[in-house]
Amino acid sequence: MKAKLITLPNIITLANLLCGTLGIISMVSLQSAGALRVAFVLMLAAALFDFLDGFVARLTGQYSPVGAQLDSLADMVSFVVLPTVVAMKIYYLAGGYGAWSAVMLLITACGALRLARFNVSDDQKREFVGLPVPACALFVGAFGWYMSGRIGLPAAAWMQWAVLAAGVVLALLMVSPVSMFSLKFEGFGFAGNEVRYTYLLVSLVIVLVAGMPGVGLAILLYILYSLVIWLVGRCK
């Protein structure tokens, strides 16, 4: 059967891909402060398109194997490669030097493994296994936005190592067995979506109070909440 390439969900997925591509170009062609901020805004736009393509596919019934593969490829660019580049820039801004920045390539490797595992799993509808790549990307991007305001300021000696450690933790979380709740809504009613609505409301308050870096704090809340629930479940 001939695959249909041009559908509304696929067009939205391509918008996700183009946002990631433009983000990588910005990291190469712009000054550090502007590059980090543009990259984060483009990550946010890519995350919106990533949510909308699935929503529109469900709404219109335009699921297809091509769409699924395209979505994974777009996510690889926008939420794996782009945040890796941003993480390397953050490391240097934190006072890092030399080849230690290569540690951040773990984000690329683990992100690719996370996407591959998701592609062959059919039990990640209500819960994810491991940190979703968009969540990892937005955490990195939000921290990049924060660091863009500190360009020219001296960094503490320990900060470069803290940044590397954070990169390793994020990478390992993506391939971990930790269960994390999905933000894919089961309809728009409150019943069955209690955790999602509550999380989004708390996240909105955090962002309104803290500004753009608040997105990173919201992702941190998501990670900590999921870890606690997962550990409690394991102890039962």
Results as ranks from 00 to 15, higher is better:
Val169Gln: 04
Ile223Asn: 06
Trp230Cys: 09
Met180His: 10
Phe188Asp: 15
Ala3Lys: 04
Pro65Arg: 04
Lys236Gln: 07
Gly214Asp: 01
Gly98Met: 12
Ala99Cys: 03
Gly144His: 07
Val66Gly: 00
Leu170Asp: 06
Gly216Val: 00
Gln160Tyr: 01
Val133Ile: 10
Gly149Lys: 01
Phe139Tyr: 14
Ser176Met: 04
Ile223Pro: 07
Ala162Glu: 08
Ala210Thr: 01
Ala210Leu: 03
Leu82Thr: 13
Ala191Lys: 13
Ala87Ile: 03
Val140Asp: 06
Leu200Asp: 11
Thr21Ile: 15
Val66Leu: 06
Ala116Glu: 14
Phe79Lys: 15
Pro83Ala: 15
Gly67Leu: 06
Lys184Thr: 08
Leu172Ser: 03
Ala47Arg: 05
Cys19Asn: 14
Leu208Met: 11
Asp75Leu: 07
Gly111Asn: 05
Val133Ala: 10
Gly233Glu: 15
Val195Gln: 15
Gln160Asp: 12
Ala135Ile: 10
Leu8Gly: 06
Gln69Val: 11
Leu173Tyr: 02
Phe40Thr: 02
Ala45His: 10
Ile107Pro: 03
Arg126Lys: 15
Ala166Asn: 09
Ala46Asp: 09
Ala109His: 05
Leu14Ile: 10
Ser26Ile: 06
Leu200Ser: 07
Asn119Asp: 14
Ala157Lys: 04
Val81Thr: 14
Leu59Phe: 06
Asp123Val: 09
Pro9Ser: 04
Ala191Ile: 10
Val56Ser: 04
Tyr63Ile: 05
Leu8Glu: 02
Val232Pro: 01
Leu93Tyr: 00
Met43Ser: 09
Ile107Asn: 07
Thr7Val: 10
Ala109Trp: 14
Val38Leu: 14
Ala47Asn: 08
Gly54His: 12
Glu127Pro: 01
Ser203Asn: 09
Ser226Gln: 10
Leu106Glu: 09
Ala87Val: 00
Phe55Ile: 06
Leu113Gln: 07
Ile90His: 10
Phe185Pro: 11
Val85Glu: 09
Leu208Glu: 10
Pro9Phe: 01
Met104Glu: 13
Leu17Ile: 06
Ala15Leu: 15
Gly216Asp: 00
Trp158Val: 01
Thr198Tyr: 02
Ser101Gln: 15
Leu105Met: 11
Ala165Arg: 01
Leu106Arg: 03
Asp71Gly: 07
Gln124Asp: 12
Ala112Ser: 10
Gln62Val: 00
Ile12Cys: 07
Leu164Asn: 06
Glu194Trp: 13
Phe51Thr: 08
Arg126Phe: 12
Ser29Pro: 00
Glu186Ala: 14
Leu48Phe: 15
Arg150Trp: 02
Phe188Cys: 06
Ile223Val: 02
Tyr97Cys: 04
Lys125Asn: 14
Leu17Thr: 02
Cys110Lys: 11
Ser203Asp: 06
Gly95His: 09
Leu52Asn: 08
Asn16Asp: 15
